[in-house]
Design a protein around this nucleic acid. Sequence first.
DNA 1: AAGACTAAACCGACCAGTCTAATAATTAAC
DNA 2: GTTAATTATTAGACTGGTCGGTTTAGTCTT
Lengths: 187, 187
Amino acid sequence: MTKEKALAAGLELFSQKGYSNVGLAEILKTAEIPKGSFYHHFKSKEAFAIQVLERYSNCGLVNFKSVLLEQKGLSPKERIKTFYSDRANEFEQKQFVKGCLLGDSCSEGGVSEEFKAFVGEQLEEWQLTIERCLEEGKENNQISKTLDTRMMASVILNGWEGAISRMKLSKSRQPLDDFMQSLDLLI
Amino acid sequence: MTKEKALAAGLELFSQKGYSNVGLAEILKTAEIPKGSFYHHFKSKEAFAIQVLERYSNCGLVNFKSVLLEQKGLSPKERIKTFYSDRANEFEQKQFVKGCLLGDSCSEGGVSEEFKAFVGEQLEEWQLTIERCLEEGKENNQISKTLDTRMMASVILNGWEGAISRMKLSKSRQPLDDFMQSLDLLI
DNA sequence: AAGACTAAACCGACCAGTCTAATAATTAAC
DNA sequence: GTTAATTATTAGACTGGTCGGTTTAGTCTT
């Protein structure tokens, strides 16, 4: 329970302010746990952050894969648009204070190489999911056979993360909508 | 001279590690100036950072505009590709440790609203330059008249920044190359 | 002499992380 | 079944270091 509260607080705080800008004190206060308990369950702030990230990525991937790989009635483009449209609505509901934990961690400084490597691996997994989705579209003749799916998956993932950064800064969903509109030209 | 050294050090350090991850001590050491001098010339670390950013954006914009708006012999797509290709080569030369100061500042936490507003304004200016470049292409029938140039400028700018984040993480130019390749489908 | 600038000691706030001690939960002994 | 021993967990004061920023004193230049 204590561990659970800590992870929930970490998810909330990190996705709003980023790893470097959240102090342990704030985590403890939000989770309502004492420092001793925290260091009993986690060996360091960074190890804790990786666990938060792991949970975030895994939970997200479950949904991502179910939308991108299992909606057999929809074309790849429709699947991708569905997923991103839902995310955009969520971001808007929370008034653009939360972003993508994984994407934001991309540009986090002051973290170990292990941390960065973990983020990189997770992003690879997300990208690979997009690629598989596109490949399936090729098989069904919903997508041009000449399309470089790896390249396209990379462009989509990175474009989306870039749009989220801009969204957070401008407190507007316009960048997200722009991105989604561009999918019509890309796929 | 003192001020100059500080700004140069700030540019170097901020674009490698980000505002929050560079302490004053490191700036002073790199610039080889004492703290007293720093606070004589700048009222705070943040005010200093804004000046660094201002200089970065202005210098960059001069080049950006000259490539995107004054290369009359090239199509918009060619101009944009030229600019980004040059940037990609620069990034590679510096082994992907430096990114785009403006884009990275997008996701900086722990900064004032004034700081964020400034970053937002500068990004708007860059985006507007792309938009003007595309508009010119419309006039010359190099670009479809139905293209939403504002949307496309947003997608290009944000997509590029997202690719840079990924580049820094993976220490590879692949995300940049992927982005550039996608321009063929977009424009 | 006056203002621009340098120099560094110093400040309180905050940082992640440690330590010791008290308490709760679980297992073992009889 | 009760008590004793053991481990898991909580609690928060405390440490050493770093943060951005201030202050005061001194040194140039004009």
